[in-house]
Amino acid sequence: METILFLAHTEADGGLAKATLEALEAARALGGVLIAGLVGASVEAAANSIAGCGASKILGVAGEAFGESRYSTDAAAAEAIAQAANATVIVAAHTSRWARALPGVAQRLGAAVDTHVAALSADLKATRWYYRQRIEGVIERAARPRVILLDSGCAPAYAGAPGAAAVELVNVEITPALQRTRVIGKQAPKAEQQTIRPDAAILFVAGAGWTKKQKDGQTHVADAGKLILDFIGSANSSLGSSKSLVDLSGEGQAVLPFLSHLNQVGQTGSTPRHPKGLATCCHGEEPHVVGWRFIKERRAVNLDANCGWARGKADVLYVADAFAVIAKVNELLKAKS
């Protein structure tokens, strides 16, 4: 029987993130002996929140230094818990913090590691994507220990009642070598920049067409910017863009000032998850559309009826002038609210 270690770090408020609770639910579904391991400035609140998860014990590494997302301390804490748990399988959420730390921890433990796992079966078959969401593989490994990082959305979040949990603290010595890096804090994007908002119901993607010459032979970048921002505001939407649009600045062309590489969706950009996506002035070519893998309903507005969206990539393609359409959509959305 496997010994499953569910490994989690706390959030700034001492609790556990939704993705973490999803990973817990996935770990519970594996059967076997479950051990929970928590890392944070203080881990009691988090332990209590999962008191009923069925873990045979809860291990913890706590202290100020472990409240921060830092490779050196995160790796040391995870390594110590894994050693104490003597687990065969370690399950964690694919958060930015664990994604950074756990592969190195696997190296220290002599463990195998599978990241970005989108689904995990009871017999430990892991489904994950290859080639930027273009090929799907299901993999197995005989090697133990095995570290598995689960992407969000892979399982329902654990929703057991909180209780009083006993935490077995594991001591990790903080040497100067672990403190060469200081975490200063978080930096939000500049006020004028719009970014991908993971919680938005709809993703608006702006393509290079917005900055190209229009019918009158002129570019209308300022108008385009206003239309896009109006839509973001009135539809409470997340903003993405195609690579070609964020790259345009390199060619000395007029660009939309609120876009950066952070907005880029696709092959070298992000693969956001939203229930809906609206692509505008964008060709819908494969390297971009791979970033749409997790957008459920897809619509596009484009002047070219032959664009990539028409080829089974969007649910609806509107062949129309996005300037006119989005202006009208904004009007209607404002009226609705």
């Binding site: 290859y130 593989g137 197995e140 089974g312 990539k313 062949v319 009208k328 959509v329």
Partner: peptide
């Protein structure tokens, strides 16, 4: 060990709206 490796089902049935007015589309 790879239990399977496959292309995801990509194709959607795209409805192409070509001759509608801006108002209708909006």
């Amino acid at each position: 060990a790879f239990a399977s490796v496959a292309l995801p089902k990509l194709q959607r049935e795209t409805r192409i709206v070509k001759d509608a007015s801006v108002d209708e589309i909006a």
